[in-house]
Write a protein that binds this DNA or RNA. Structure first.
Lengths: 242, 242
DNA sequence: TCAAGTTGTCTGTGATATTAGACAACTTCA
DNA sequence: TGAAGTTGTCTAATATCACAGACAACTTGA
């Protein structure tokens, strides 16, 4: 008889990875927490340190943990579930996850409408626009960086208002626009370039989600055009199909 | 960068085994059906024949399939879920699974009560007993073989009645006992000996489940003592704890 | 009886998994 | 600044996985 112990058919490192993932999921190591060192994990799981490293590499690949040389391996916060509905605001989404939403103005400038922006905003090509660049964070983790364009003629004080209130919703409210919604959202992905990497605190080569959105008022007239780049490892878009 | 393709950590043969098991579970191959040959399975799964063999060996180890040299590999019928309650009858259990329950009388004899049987049946040591040996099948698959002892003084015509009706329930009914139940069930396991192997159509060395049971009447008085050996690969006891 | 088709077993080869040890590179903290 | 602790990288040896080919042993059906 062959009598071979019927191996589970799962490699050892995978078992270790699953075990660690289970511990994280059960709250054994909260987000941001440092995992035990590789040597300790190896002894605990009765396995070679290299096998632990393979397991951690797999978890890191999926964004569950992050290794910091010389310091330790840390549990990453779970990805923010980012529902793509017509009326969800960044602050609501992040707040719903029990995290503190923050915004940071990176800069503002005046630009003339390119053909594409003009088409989106239903303005003539070359129309004056205000461009506002901002960074958004959940607690201290950068989530996305992006630009918003709006008509300089209709909202001449947009930059000043945004600096004052730190919220595009309030900028529009100052102009009597109480309701606006997302009309269209297009999503693609790319690899973080040096700029993304710096502002989103990402490694170069990590994926970013690119969102092109258009917000409109209650009557469907275009208000804002957006180009936003999300750190893919910190966010997960949820599309609700009906 | 290491850039190692993040392997799933599951061996190829295990993936193939899971795939075949899924097909069986989804009814692609009904019980008793012959699977495609190893060569065909290998080409279908784009894998070496030896890898398929490893997968089939794992499934055979779990009793899902059975390989017959020179002929093919066949899907084993799923194990009968055999609930251990106080009032379940073999025929009901098998019938509930959509299979045809059958019984076969192997023999009957008179014995004197051993100390153990006497204690169970609440009779004096050496009291005359009738022993009935029977084989039970689901469709044509032997499920269990066992002996039943009952008092020869109380049920002198038990053998004749059992031959006539083929059912212990009806033997008791002829004596006015309309209700009886299982008072205790003890379970252990052993390896099939030559006798088991022959009568249960098992390979020698395969496991058998050994059940020692005592049936009592409505007032708790012992009626039957049973020793039954089940083909473990065809049955699965279900104990309902409350 | 024979041929075709099947599973069982053997040998061999290359890739991967796992272990082991050593050292480099880096962070943290006293 | 230095020591301790951490992750990153390298070499090496062994075991298992997966592939490949050949043949034996057996069943089935003409």
């Amino acid at each position: 008889m062959s009598t071979l112990q019927p191996d589970s058919g799962v490699t050892l490192w995978r078992k270790v990875a699953d075990s660690i993932e289970r511990e994280i999921a059960q709250g054994g190591y909260p987000a941001g927490e440092k995992l035990p060192g590789e040597v300790e994990l190896a002894t605990v799981h009765r396995v070679n340190r290299h096998t632990v490293r393979r397991a951690l590499a797999a978890l890191a690949e999926r964004g569950l943990v992050r290794a910091e040389r010389g310091s330790g391996t840390y549990v990453e916060p779970g990805r923010i579930a980012y529902p793509l509905r017509s009326r969800t605001r960044f602050s609501e989404i992040v707040g719903a996850g029990g995290r503190e939403p923050r915004g940071q103005l990176l800069g503002a400038s005046r630009e003339d409408a390119t053909r594409e922006l003009a088409r989106e905003l239903d303005l003539p090509v070359g129309a004056p626009l205000i461009r506002i660049d901002g960074l958004r964070l959940a607690d201290s983790a950068p989530i996305c960086v992006g630009s918003t364009w709006l008509s300089a003629e209709r909202f001449p004080d947009a930059e000043e208002l945004y600096r004052r209130f730190g919220s595009m919703t309030k900028v529009l409210a100052q102009h009597g626009i109480r309701d606006y919604r997302r009309a269209s959202t297009r999503i693609t992905a790319a690899i973080a370039d040096a700029g993304d990497a710096a502002r989103l605190d990402l490694g170069i080569g990590r994926p970013v989600l690119i969102v092109e959105g258009l917000d409109v008022d209650g009557k469907g007239r275009p208000l804002l055009a957006l180009r936003t780049r999300f750190a893919a490892e910190r966010v997960q878009f949820v599309v609700e199909t009906e």
